[in-house]
């Protein structure tokens, strides 16, 4: 796979979302979009400008956002409901549970500004628990695209999934590095780089630094496999099993609290298929803090150098 690593191109996943929505809107008249007064940030405004009659700003009312989307789905529409992850997955979780997940409705919940890379807004806005909350809902599909190109594919590719779908997006610009030939497949992980000593299983914007970390490890003769686990649920258990069988040790990477996200999903798959040592690179059960996105990525150990260092330590502590 010809990756652009390092990449000289950056883009917002939320821009890709807005453009994908507009593209969908032109093709699918049943697509409607709702936002809780943050459309300029979530980029649903791109759709709103093109299709004002199918766009609803419900105001700063996240409970209503989810319930109204539920009502529209019951009328045969395909609603996309967006706001920031902390408000959508946090404040409105019970509405998602009762009004969307319980009846299994075709609502797409696409929330931006997840993770510490929200930056200066600080911990109040840095959603680090959404993957746990959304994974816990029966029948909810959970997707964290790795870059803008995958975001577009994930949005377009899940429009007809029968039940509810959650897609997690970021605030900051992130490298665009997946090749043109890359194909998002729901529920399938993609091996972006092969290796036999350790597997780095990452999601979202940590896939890219995982690839750079693999380059650093290579210099020490450590061959790291890198997986893009963009679908957290349903999880690609076969890919996890193959990593355990073929590389032995596993490192997971997620911009999320260590509880309830990728690490625990992978850990369960490992225990149930092919037990292997796992090291989780994640936020260590704490809230975020204010800073620039780059400062915070460094502070929380998400830079290529720190990922490589952690991986080396882990490999030393768990000899093959």
């Amino acid at each position: 796979m010809q990756l652009s690593v390092p990449s000289d191109r950056q883009a917002f996943t939320r821009d890709a979302y807005g453009d994908a929505l507009a593209e969908l809107g032109a093709r699918r008249p049943e697509v409607v979009v709702l936002d809780a007064d943050l459309s300029g940030s979530t980029k649903t405004s791109v759709f709103g400008k093109k299709f004002p009659e199918r766009f609803f700003n419900v105001g700063v009312s996240e409970a209503d956002l989810m319930c109204t989307a539920s009502g529209l789905a019951r009328s045969g529409k395909i609603p996309y409901a967006s706001t920031f992850a902390v408000f959508g997955a946090g404040k409105a979780w019970e509405m998602i549970r009762q009004a969307i997940a319980y009846p299994g409705l075709r609502v797409r919940i696409v929330l931006s500004h997840a993770g510490v890379t929200v930056g200066e807004d600080g911990a109040s806005h840095q959603m680090l628990e959404d993957l746990a909350l959304m994974r816990a809902l029966p029948g909810m599909t959970v997707i964290v695209p790795a870059d803008a190109a995958e975001t577009r594919q994930a949005v377009l590719g899940t429009v007809d999934v029968p039940g509810p779908v959650y897609i997690r997006l970021s605030r900051n610009k992130t490298p665009v590095f997946l090749p043109d030939s890359y194909e998002f497949r729901l529920g399938r992980a993609t091996v972006l780089r092969d290796g036999s000593d350790v597997s780095l299983i990452a999601c979202g914007q940590l896939v890219y630094p995982a690839l750079l970390a693999a380059d650093l490890l290579q210099r020490d003769g450590i061959r790291a496999r890198v997986l893009n686990m963009s679908t957290l649920k349903p999880l690609d258990r076969e890919a996890v099993q193959a990593c355990a069988q073929e590389t032995g040790r596993i490192v997971t990477l997620e911009e999320h609290n260590i509880y309830g996200g990728l690490a625990e999903a992978v850990a369960r798959a490992l225990v149930e298929t092919h037990p292997a040592p796992l090291h989780a690179i994640a936020v260590q059960d704490r809230f975020g803090l204010s800073g620039t996105a780059d400062e915070l990525l460094d502070y929380f150990g998400f830079t290529p150098q720190k990922i490589a260092d952690e991986t080396r330590k882990f490999l030393k502590a768990t000899p093959a």
Partner: peptide, 11 residues
């Protein structure tokens, strides 16, 4: 009520 609101919008 909010779900009914969505159904009414759909209508």
């Amino acid at each position: 009520l909010p779900v009914g609101l969505g159904i009414a919008l759909g209508c």
